[in-house]
Design a protein around this nucleic acid. Structure first.
Length: 304
DNA sequence: TCCCAGGGAGGAT
DNA sequence: ATCCTCCATGGG
């Protein structure tokens, strides 16, 4: 099928944007989307309210994000496009002005990270379930590995959307994933498979409602998430930040622990809890964003 | 309390 | 070529 009926949306933002760096840092909002030779990233997104699934491809043009949308033969209304635009703004963190953050902490020990990672945005899930499962997969793993696992789930159970370059897949909804759980072996999730199945079951049965967590305080939502099997404090924070956009939740893993211990405790190794508390105490509502920049900074400088 | 579950790359030997 | 290590969570 040849796709030539793309609708173009142009999204502006305040402050710098670096789309490639943002996506390839590997936030658990969704697995890193595939890109074509022109560097456009493809994914399937569901339009709020009308629930129409469309293929979207995005690229950066100056400080703007260009999103091209194809709905195949389905008509998109003005309201659809408006809702999609709003969702995409949140998905790529365009609603936050990073300059505010850089300015507020310009004399902070992590200020060098702003130069190093300038334009990195917080991505936020357009599909809560996909983000929750992705967060579970990140545990005890590396970016390339969990992204592979999440992509395999999509290929095994998602809806297929052909493009001129490759097939693009949606993430299955909880009911579908649970129904096809016998196929999960092929996704090679290792011992995380059990966590994925149990959590999926609780969500498919409406024991836990991810959508309801958006509007309750961060720590209350965290308590709910911790009831799910395979979700501990770190993974819960990842979903709060990258799934729900709660920017006061800093996921604290071994890298952040080392970084915080070095910067704020003169290198004396502190516990994960102490390091998380330090981030919240120091960065307040920006704690999650501080974590995002610290992570990218530490990882990119420790490779060399 | 410690140890293991599964995955696969990257570093050390 | 083979071994060791990394990494969150839960359970024995």
């Amino acid at each position: 099928m040849v796709m030539d009926n793309w609708i173009t949306l142009s999204l502006t933002t305040k402050g710098p944007l670096n789309l490639k760096r943002t996506l390839e840092t590997g936030h658990s909002s969704f697995p890193i989307p595939r890109s074509d030779k022109s560097g456009r990233y493809y994914f399937v997104i569901t339009i709020p309210d009308s629930h129409k699934k469309v293929v979207c491809r995005v690229y950066q043009k100056g400080a703007k994000l260009i999103a091209e949308v194809s709905s195949y033969n389905e008509q998109l209304s003005e309201n659809d496009l408006k809702a999609l635009k709003k969702l995409l703004r949140k998905t790529f963190g365009l609603h936050l002005n990073m300059l505010e953050f850089y300015t507020e902490f310009k004399n902070d020990p992590i200020a060098p990270a702003f130069k190093h990672c300038v334009g990195v945005r917080l991505t936020c899930a357009h599909d809560h379930f996909e983000s929750l499962i992705s967060s579970i997969l990140t545990q005890n793993s590396s970016i390339w590995k969990w992204v592979g696992q999440a992509r395999r789930i999509k290929e095994l159970m998602g809806d297929k959307f052909p493009t001129d370059h490759f097939m693009v897949y949606s993430f299955p909804d909880p009911q579908k994933l649970f129904r096809y759980k016998h196929l999960l072996k092929e996704a090679k999730l290792g011992y995380r498979e059990e966590y994925v199945i149990k959590s999926t079951q609780d969500i498919a049965n409406y024991q836990i409602r991810l959508d309801k967590l958006e509007n309750i305080p961060t720590m209350e939502a965290k308590k709910v998430l911790l009831k799910l099997k395979g979700i501990g404090p770190k993974v819960a924070d990842m979903f709060l930040l990258y799934g729900l956009g709660k920017i006061d939740a800093p996921p604290t893993d071994i890298w952040i622990q080392r970084g915080v211990s070095k910067i704020f405790f003169k290198g004396k190794e502190k516990s994960l809890e102490e390091c998380r508390e330090k981030l919240v105490e120091r960065y307040g509502k920006w704690a999650g964003i501080a974590q995002l920049y610290m992570f990218d900074w530490i990882r990119s400088t420790s490779k060399k």
